[in-house]
Design a protein around this nucleic acid. Structure first.
Lengths: 352, 352
DNA sequence: ATATTTTGTACAAACGTTTGCGCAAAAAAT
DNA sequence: ATTTTTTGCGCAAACGTTTGTACAAAATAT
């Protein structure tokens, strides 16, 4: 009769963090030096014999060795850690980018420290300072505010830094973002093509580059078309801002015929106000927004939007990041990706 | 005449990770011991004199000292790091919970390593093993699959472990989740109250506890009402699954009059199929779903749902986690929070 | 004045790696 | 048979903290 006894040894070994390089050295009769060299993949470089190599690898597997990152980092300075800082995780746009970027980073064997600066430059700076103690090897950031000093100084000092979405136009800090000017332009042009002449734009954080460029795209397109009746209102990428500003717009004696919202959060607030006031999209007012979202297709009126290539932004940013981490010579560039106009049903054709 | 020369010294000091405890010791003429004790807040405990204390603190501030976590961890074993593992970051439910939990964790001065197991137990286990090298102090996990061994063994060994959303019913691993049975029950009862008798339920990952309990809640409520015409279909918490299963349901000769979807992703797929087939909610078919979402109110038909207390789940989980981290004696319990039925317009009253 | 306690500080080892350098044995070249 | 080269491996220091122990000086008690 055969008994299968579950000694539980395997799980035991795996959940107790104990075995280190010295244990393996003891077990194999080799030195910690040799063990370390094998385990860190430098066997060839240091000409470790085939036999020793094998012995070490077997022992490591058998004993469920897992290297202690902290010890290794202390010695080498390599933390296998990067920071991801963004202005607001509660904004679905940033949340989905964070998910993607985090996944990419993990794929490289690194971890990401994710921080929410809450659109507050002071918090951002504090986080950045805290992070020094974690010896981060790179920084992926959508900076809030327009103070670039600190970030620039990190970049100048050779720390791999990539801005995404938010960035600084005049500095040579690499970034990946959407062509925000073009995005606003095509959205506005779409409205104009449909016969709209009185258009309001609800903006987000004014000091941010994307917002500035979107507003610029909006204004220039309007003026190029000879349209003077445009207003730009608002000051935050939040639902609340969208709601408030829309309420105000709708109370005007002469309502705009269309609204362009510069983010999905603003659009959400805008829709809330519109619904409350009992007016209809697009019959009474047209709406188009920045940012795509899976739900847009199923809204009472499917919402036309300017889609940002979230996935591409994430991938390129991380590609740059690790190219730079692995080769300090590499110089990531500044790229703007094409947005895409997705026409649905929220813009009405005006007959004049 | 006065010149203001920006020496840039400040930013310099802050972006170059160099100054350590020894530098401060030198500058103050004290020993590293004393400096360490002051800086780690153990001045009283070790009776450091007021004067020395002040000198150290001033020097530290002046030199922009930031402690090296890696060195400290190597010595103490405290990593100030916890792991957050969940099945799918692309599911908005988990994404929003991840955001909240991450923020809470950062608030405690810890960092979170966020991993997506992609509903794959093997990946989950791999991640868990990798994480050992990071010396994590705690684990917050929505385990995929029903293999609890590894997690249980971590828990038994004193590692603070909190499951959220997904959990193991028969084990004494602490968890925080929604009362899924009740959630399904109230949703189903709502449908029944509205006169529905033929109801289909599109489920998610079958082996998961929440799914099992939701299905149980659905089935029991139906049978208690004497209704036999219920079917449970599907096998994944994805948009695709919702889409496919709805397509199949709608092709049946005898359609159900209502559908209960067990997640927001499934609901999204379901709506897609419904829209494609050109049928209307709630006139042709009623729909109710698990999970809330800001957009639900603005859908072509605002979607009734069972809202999970995402924010409370996150907060309680983290509260438990740190209670346990800071006091090994503490025993987190197993809690289920009340879901809330939010009635909108997607369920029609049937007149029989 | 001496013994005891309290106060304030420092020495040195330890945490688990990595790595420059050195050295012996084996192989190859002379 | 000797010299040179190659191959294989180990010693020991270093990374920046924390902490048990020790000890002198000051304060207090006898």
């Amino acid at each position: 009769m055969i008994y299968y006894i579950c000694t539980n040894d395997c799980t035991d070994a795996m959940t107790t963090q104990k075995v280190n390089i010295t244990d393996i050295a003891q077990k194999t009769g080799l030195s910690t030096t040799t063990v370390s060299r094998v385990l860190s993949g430098k066997a060839k470089q240091y000409r470790i014999g085939k036999k020793s190599q094998q012995k070490v690898e077997e022992a490591a597997k058998e004993m469920h060795y897992v290297p202690n990152h902290f010890a290794a980092n202390l010695r080498t300075g390599k933390s296998n850690t990067v920071a991801l800082i963004l202005p607001s995780l509660s904004n679905p746009f940033f949340a989905s980018i964070a998910s993607e970027i985090n996944a990419e980073i993990r794929r490289f064997g690194y971890i990401a420290i994710i921080s929410d600066s809450d659109e507050n430059p002071d918090i951002e700076k504090m986080e950045l300072e805290q992070l020094r103690g974690r010896n981060i090897e790179g920084l992926v950031i959508a900076p809030c505010g327009d103070q670039a000093e600190y970030i620039k100084s990190l970049n100048d000092r050779g720390m791999p830094v990539i801005c995404f979405d938010r960035y600084f136009e005049d500095l040579d800090i690499p970034y990946v973002s959407t062509d925000n000017f073009m995005g606003a332009q095509i959205a506005t042009q779409h409205l104009i093509d449909k016969g709209h002449e009185s258009i309001a734009c609800i903006q987000g954080v004014r000091s941010s580059t994307p917002n500035r460029l979107r507003v610029k795209g909006f204004v220039e397109t309007m003026e190029n078309a000879g349209l003077k009746k445009h207003s730009v209102v608002g000051d935050d990428f939040t639902v609340q801002n969208g709601y408030l500003e829309t309420k105000l717009l709708l109370r005007q004696s002469k309502r705009p015929t269309a609204i362009l919202t510069l983010s999905n959060t603003i659009a959400l607030g805008c829709m809330k106000a519109i619904k409350e006031e009992g007016i209809r999209i697009p019959e009474d007012i047209s709406l188009i927004t920045f940012d795509e979202h899976p739900y847009l297709d199923y809204l009472s009126t499917p919402l036309s939007c300017v889609a940002q290539p979230v996935s591409d932004i994430s991938k390129i940013a991380i590609k740059f990041l690790f190219a730079k981490i692995n080769n300090a010579e590499f110089e990531p560039s500044q790229v703007l990706l094409r947005p895409e106009l997705k026409i649905k049903e929220s813009v009405r054709k005006l007959n004049d």
